[in-house]
């Protein structure tokens, strides 16, 4: 028995395909990225080793810090706006009957199955000053309908709205599953004791949902840091670099500004920030759970 389970050849045959794929597609590229980050490679032709020059440039690059700030802004938007709304909606949804529950859940999640490419262009049209949906809505409420939300100053808020809107259903669904896992007898006991919906939500739902909320908050921060696709198509970081995000910035530097080496140094910083924040958030929540 034990012998069959420790046959080295069998083990190797089982894990090798996975390891090879992973090394080839994830690990090797990251190492290569570190290598190129130390060069002044433009993408074509020869290049020289320039040591840490790229990273020193990165520290003084205001656009990089701006993109990091935008990520944090997005994370705050997720945590302070999207998630509270998602929890409340999930809690109400939990109280509905069968058919209505399924219907609303389906409607809320629908935007999530649609490609980011479509969502980005759809919102580009919604924000369009001449025929966009937003301006028509503003006109109905008596405003002046020639607002260009993607222009200077407001663009970052316009981008945040799209991202919060698009991710709402996903967050709602996770909270909804969490609430479904709460023992219904708790609510019955509470209502016998005279608790109304508000009190049972605050005293039962929220405390029991703590682990789910923690997972969701971690996911929200990571998602915000990783954001690229929607911004790439919606504004490509513009106007100027107002709506820049890290992933989009490194892409732009490498392929539009032909600073491939510098792009890679942003990439290295980007990976480090993502890994670090995951570790830090897990650590914080673990300590809290133990305390």
């Amino acid at each position: 028995m034990h012998k069959a389970y420790s046959n080295k050849l069998v083990i190797l045959s089982l894990v090798l395909p996975g390891i090879l794929t992973f090394v080839f597609a994830v690990l090797a590229p990251i190492c290569l990225s570190v290598y190129y980050a130390l060069t002044d490679f433009s993408g074509l032709g020869d290049y020289n080793f320039i040591g840490g020059t790229n990273f020193i440039e990165l520290i003084h690059d205001t656009n990089f810090w701006l993109s990091l700030r935008n990520s944090l802004l997005l994370a705050a938007g997720f945590i302070l706006i999207q998630h509270p709304l998602a929890i409340i909606t999930a809690a109400i949804l939990d109280r509905l009957g069968k058919h209505a529950e399924g219907f609303f859940r389906c409607v809320y999640f629908l935007p999530n199955v649609i490609s980011v490419a479509i969502i980005a262009y759809l919102w580009k049209f919604i924000y369009n000053p001449s025929f966009g949906l937003l301006n028509n809505v503003i006109e109905i409420f008596g405003g002046k309908g020639e607002v260009n939300m993607l222009g200077t100053g407001t663009a970052i808020w316009a981008v945040l709205v799209v991202l919060i809107w698009h991710g709402f259903g996903w967050g709602m669904l996770i909270y909804y599953t969490g609430i479904k896992n709460i023992d219904p007898t708790l609510y019955e006991a509470a209502s016998i004791d005279g608790a109304d919906n508000k009190i049972s939500f605050l005293r039962i739902t929220l405390p029991l949902m703590k682990p789910v909320i923690q997972v969701n908050v971690t996911l929200a921060v990571i998602t915000a840091l990783k954001q690229m696709e929607t911004v790439y198509l919606l504004t490509n970081g513009g106007p100027g670099n107002e709506t820049q995000f890290m992933a989009n910035y490194l892409y732009k530097q490498a392929f539009s500004s032909f600073k491939y080496g510098y792009g890679n140094s942003i990439s290295v910083a980007f990976v480090s920030i993502c890994i670090l924040s995951t570790i830090i958030l897990n650590r914080i929540f673990k300590e809290k759970a133990e305390a």
Binding site: S6, L14, I19, L27, P29, L250, Y260, N264, V271, C274
Partner: peptide
């Protein structure tokens, strides 16, 4: 199965969850 590196290999692959896709675009 029983082998020494089982935890290491699993940990390595799971580490991949933290690595953003977009960081591999350039390399």
């Amino acid at each position: 199965m029983y082998w020494k590196l089982s935890k290491v290999v699993k940990g390595l692959i799971l580490l991949g969850m933290m690595i953003p896709i977009h960081a591999t675009l350039l390399p």
